[in-house]
Structure formats: C-alpha cells, structure tokens
Design a protein around this nucleic acid. Structure first.
Lengths: 262, 262
DNA sequence: CGAGTATTTGAGCAATTTCAAAGCGGGTGG
DNA sequence: CCACCCGCTTTGAAATTGCTCAAATACTCG
C-alpha cells in the first residue's frame, strides 16, 4: 500500500494552512476567544506549556493571542510539509504523529505528541513546515501565532526562556532518538519506546503501567526504524518473558525493570 | 577498545567548562577582546553565523560580548555531556563532532560541524550539555555567552530571529538524520553523507568534488548507524562503480548524479 | 454483521555485523 | 632522515538480525 495514497484516504478533509486572518469558524471564534473552560488559567496542561511566574497581566496577554481550542479529527492534519509556517500548536487533548517524507516517497514517523506537547517548531527555520502533523485520535490544539509569541519573548524574559527550552528540548529529544536508531537492537528499541511512553503518561498523571496505544504497529515501527512485523514479534517476546501483557493496543507493563534491562 | 578509555587518552587536556568570569587566558583576552582579524566584521563566516541587517552599533554590541577565537586542539573537547551550559559556540575554523553517550557506554556521533556552524544549543533545555563536542582537527571557535545573546534577542528582532532559525535548523537537520537512520540502506546512507558534506563545503566556497575527510570510518559509521567495515565496503563499491575516487581520507566525487540515484 | 484493516506468526532470505587477518600510512623518536 | 609502530582501513568468510512474503486470525467501524 502506498502511503501517499493512504494519506488521501485517511485525511480527505485536510485542514488548510491558516493565515492569521483565518476563515470560517476559526476567525469567528478568534474574535471572541477565551470561552470559559478554555482559558490557559484553567487548563490542566498549563504547567507543561506555559512558563511559571507570569504576572496576571502577562498571562492575560498570552491568552489574548492564543486561539485556545481547535478540534482536529482523527486522521486530519494540523499542517503538512511545505505549508507556510505561521503558528505553533500546543496539544490540549488527544495525540499526534509527525511524519517526514523523502522525495522518493519513503516516510518516517519522527515523533508522537501527547497533550501538553508542542508541535510546529520544525517550521521556524525555513518558514515552511518540514513534516506533517496528523491526529491519531480526535484531538484539540491551541494555536499560538509565532510572530506574536516572538514579540512577547522580546518583552518577557520567562516567556523567552520557555520558548528556548521548548526548542532546546526538541533538539535533545531528537538526538536521543538518533541514538536509538543508530545503536539499539529491535528489542531495545521497542522496550525503550514503551518505557518512554510510560514515563510521559506518568508525568501527565496517567497510569504508567496500563495504557492504550493510539498508533498502529506500522507507525511504531516507522518511528523506531524497524518493520511492523518486528514490532509485533518483540511485543510477543516481551509477553512470553513476562515483561508486558499486550492485548492488541492495550498494554500493561508488568516488569518495568525487566524492560530497562533488555 | 572502550571508547570511554579512548576519551581519556585522546583528550587528556580537556578544557574545563567556563563560567562567564573565565579563568586565565580567556579572562585576560575577554577584557581586551577584538584583536584585529578576529572581529566578526572581518570574519569570512559572518554571513553564516550572524544575522543580516544589523546597524553598526548592534554589530559592535554583539562583538563586545563574543570571545572571538579560542583554539581547540585535535581531540580536545569544547564541552562535555553534563557540563553546565553557559555559552554557545560558532566554529570559526576547523571541524568538530558531537557525541552522545548512553548509560551503558554505547555512543553515537550526532553531528559533524564545520566552520560557520553553531555548537552547544543542546544545553539550552536543561542547563547542561547533553553531548560532547570534540575537535576533529586543530580548530577555533567563537564563544557566545548565551544569557547575553538572549538579552540581545529581547532588544533586536533580527538577532532573535537568527537564533530561532539556528535552533529550528538544528531541529530540521536532526529529523532528516532520523529519516536516514530509520529508512535508508547502508549504501544510501554513505552516499547521502558524501553528498551532504559536498553541499556544505560548496556553500562555504570549497570544492564540492574533492575534499579531505577529517573523521575516521568509525566516526562516519557511528553517525550513519552502521559499522566502520560497512562504510569501507560501500566506499569500495562506489569506487568500483565509478561514482567516487577514494584514497584513504581523500575523496573525489566523480558522479554526483550517480550518488543521488543510489 | 461484514468488509476492510490491523496484528500475529512462520519460513526463507538478504543485508549487515562479527571476527579475523593483512595492508597502509603517517607521525615520532632515534 | 628513516624505520618502526600504532591506529586506520580494507577485505574475506561465517554468523546473525531483521526483512520479505505469505497466510491465518482478530478487530473495528460503518
């Protein structure tokens, strides 16, 4: 199956890239933003995507230019490679994958993004996005126009530092993934993937031991640089070894230490 | 051979991390920085590491806090993983590799950095560097204290945008490398490596067709996620196929298109 | 409920690694 | 200035890992 074809099937209702004066719904909502329950102040992800120590006035200023909750259906993209870069996004609910495509059509999942994670910084350098960001389930994102964020960074040091830490974090995360792809066996890659996901869920207050994968074996394999059959075999092996209990997409980690030592 | 052991042999005179009031030489020089021929204005790498469109006053301000030329001998490190992050570095001459190490001792080359490239942004997120940066030959770097650069970013938009583009560029570069590591055959990896290096040399005004590798086959292999023997075999194969002429570390690209189509 | 996906598992195969040995190269100390 | 030595590189052969192809089974969403 061609992945290019798959895209057009999975994502028939691709969301167009948005210039600051966005059309329809968005623009209407943007004129009257902060509906209650959608304010950053009330957002459970706030500690992840916002800096600490803002004054109420600064907080209000940030809220004034964040569009606080756009819904993205499963399979839809927030942006695609080569779209003009205008905004970054904070995942408010749900999850996403980012996918880069090579000119020959080969593609690779470069990341999975959970609530609280940011998306879109790949567009900062060239002014165009370098990957597709697709929802793995029905999701919500906050939209943060980058030039307004940059303007605020020039005035508020903690906002600047927060942006720099986000970008720096992305750089470090990617080099860890390069190490995984460059040096680990298939078995270690899958173990690392599970542990990493478990950690991130724990940090968000979910159970680190039991969770539901929103992505397919193929997407996991792409992310890990192995084939989907290999992912499946490694999960089966972990099952036999009593490290995890897998039931399709439901995962239960039985032996955390065991996975670490794989 | 243990790479840990190798480090202490190769790099017996490791340069200590520098707090802003740096000791000895650096501090002395820092008090009287811009020796002639070391000013950014006169630097051939200026177009790569500095933004366009600065006023003379702004340029002078940047120059006032950049320490313009520290020499790093082959095998020495500018910083190492876990060193406190204070500054970023612009390679003024020579070349570097960055290396991340896993807790089990496995290590991976995450990048090769030529004159004009930046180094050190991996420390922005956590305040500590996440990799080692080691000179592949006797080299020179400019030292840019990050908190001063951040301060200037708050005042001068083009400086801010330049920093953001540098960080964004790092993110995009790393995702390309993830794609290479995740989807390409050994043959394609080596071809891509040669073409990439060729491009970067061309952009710096050097011959894109003939160059000297400053790194070993082992370092190339680590960067590409393959073994040194495989690198060697692929180079021999390209030689047989008339794509390149290899004589040890001297490379001549004979058929650029051929490499692209590997 | 049924079609189309997604997952699991097996068997054979291909690419890369591992292990081994020989050649080369250039830096250094005599 | 030359010879020697150590590290780097090349090459071969055997071993291994993960891939490909194939088929059966399990899910999930209309």
């Amino acid at each position: 199956m061609s992945d290019v074809a798959a895209y057009s099937v999975i994502s028939p209702t691709r969301i167009p890239p948005h210039a600051p004066p966005a059309p329809g719904q968005l623009s209407a909502a943007a004129r009257a933003p902060q509906k209650d329950g959608q304010r950053c102040t009330a957002c459970s992800m706030r500690s992840i995507c916002m800096p600490q120590g803002l004054t109420p006035a600064e907080l209000q200023r940030i809220e004034s230019f964040i569009y606080p909750s756009r819904t993205i259906k499963q399979g839809e993209t927030i942006y695609r490679a080569n779209d003009s870069f205008q905004s970054i996004y904070a995942v408010r609910a749900g999850s996403f994958k980012t996918v880069v495509m090579h000119r020959d059509g080969r593609e690779q999942v470069t990341g999975f993004h959970l609530a609280g994670d940011s998306l879109g910084l790949d567009g900062v350098c060239s002014g165009r996005h370098s990957c597709d960001a697709m929802a793995l389930e029905d999701s919500k994102v906050c939209i943060i126009p980058f030039h307004l964020l940059e303007a605020m960074c020039r005035e508020v040091k903690v906002v600047q530092q927060h942006l720099h830490r986000m970008m720096g974090g992305e750089i470090v995360r990617e080099s860890s993934q390069m190490m995984l792809l460059g040096t680990m066996s298939a078995e270690q890659r899958v173990a690392t993937f599970l542990l990493n996901l478990s950690d991130r869920l724990r940090m968000r207050g979910y159970s680190p031991a039991e969770f539901h994968l929103r992505m397919t074996r193929e997407e996991i394999g792409s992310y890990l640089g192995i084939k989907l059959e290999t992912v499946s075999r490694m999960l089966s092996k972990f099952q036999r070894d009593g490290l995890v209990d897998t039931r399709g997409k439901d995962i239960r980690i039985l032996d955390h230490e065991g996975l670490v030592n794989v």
